[in-house]
């Protein structure tokens, strides 16, 4: 019962935080030089005052800033995210159109990095004093230190251009009207390179974190007890060490999961993946305020949601936390 009240409190706080974020973002965006009318007129290669005024009036940018803020916030309150100035389409539709591609990419990368990272980390911990353990750590360090875009470009050069195994870019093959399983397979092939690229860095982080955390846990008394009981080393690793080493990894996973909406700008750009990250970047360049604010809102909401979820998972993994709260 107490626990339920806690969740309600957290949700209430989340709404307030979200509201503050919306207001903060609104002013932040309006501080950037140039407005959508100037950018659109700039692209046209010709303009006059009349044209700019037409655009500003159409977008509602001719009104005082506080009126614009009020319009925006009252829109958000009714879940109306407004229109994209540039694309003349509701912001909500644009985001929903791009969301599946992004979630597919970041979700795959998330599962991949978490799974493989924990696996590699525990292997490295178990072989801490052996060459194989050092090798895993060296590899993790390389992935950790290499810039994402470089990995992406090199992967394309190797697997797409040289070996011709995988498609170089895009979401599906244009010009073939695939359906059903063939389409899933096609998208899957297109997914491999970007998802792997995106996963490498966080996989390295999980590997390092898991190893350190497990080595620490293996010093604990209950591990000695388990050994003294004569349990098999594998069982000790899984049940006694890994479980107790999971907390910091969950914290990290919670942070990463919160970035799933907007965290893949570079990967999406290099691989022409039609996701939210690219939409956000373009909206920023074009000063498409409504669209940008809408994406900010979604990613902020996701971060907050995953914070709450992480806290709940803590309680599940370690009942002591649940009780002390």
């Amino acid at each position: 019962m107490l626990y339920a009240r806690l969740i309600i409190m957290r949700l209430l706080k989340a709404v307030i935080v979200l509201f503050l974020i919306v207001i903060f973002n609104f002013f932040l965006i309006h501080m950037a030089p140039g407005d959508p009318a100037v950018v659109m007129a700039g692209e046209a290669g010709a303009t006059d005052a009349e044209f700019l005024n037409q655009l500003r009036e159409q977008f509602g940018l001719d009104q005082p800033l506080y009126v614009q803020l009020w319009n925006y916030v009252s829109g958000i309150a009714t879940l109306d995210f407004g229109y994209s100035y540039r694309q003349q389409t509701p912001v909500f539709d644009l985001i929903m159109d791009r969301l599946p591609a992004t979630l597919l990419l970041t979700g795959t990368a998330f599962v991949m990095s978490l799974g493989l990272g924990i696996l590699a980390g525990s292997m490295a911990a178990a072989r801490a004093k052996k060459l194989s353990g050092s090798l895993i750590m060296a590899l993790a360090l390389v992935f950790y230190a290499t810039p994402l875009f470089w990995v992406a470009l090199m992967a394309v050069m190797l697997f797409s251009v040289q070996l011709e195994w995988l498609p170089a870019y895009g979401y599906y093959t244009v010009g073939t009207d695939l359906t059903g399983f063939a389409l899933v397979l096609d998208i899957g092939q297109h997914l491999i390179l970007p998802a792997t690229t995106l996963a490498l860095f966080s996989m390295a982080v999980y590997t390092r974190m898991t190893r350190t955390s497990m080595l620490e846990a293996s010093q604990q008394d209950y591990v000695k007890t388990a050994r003294a009981k004569g349990l098999a080393p594998g069982v000790i690793q899984r049940r006694h060490i890994l479980r107790n080493a999971l907390l910091p990894i969950i914290t990290l996973a919670g942070l990463q999961a919160g970035q799933m909406v907007g965290g893949a700008i570079l990967t999406e750009t290099v691989f022409a993946w039609p996701g939210i990250g690219r939409l956000m970047f373009e909206a920023l360049m074009q000063r498409d305020y409504n669209l940008l604010l809408g994406i900010f809102f979604f990613s902020a909401a996701l971060v907050i949601a995953f914070n709450i979820i992480t806290d709940l998972v803590y309680g599940l993994v370690d009942p002591r936390i649940k009780e002390s709260s």
Binding site: V156, M157, S160, G170, V270, A272
Partner: peptide, 20 residues
Amino acid sequence: INWHVIPDASSRAVAYENGT
């Protein structure tokens, strides 16, 4: 005519190189 949208300049070069 298919106009592909590829935001990165080097990816566009690759798309030409590999024949798409």
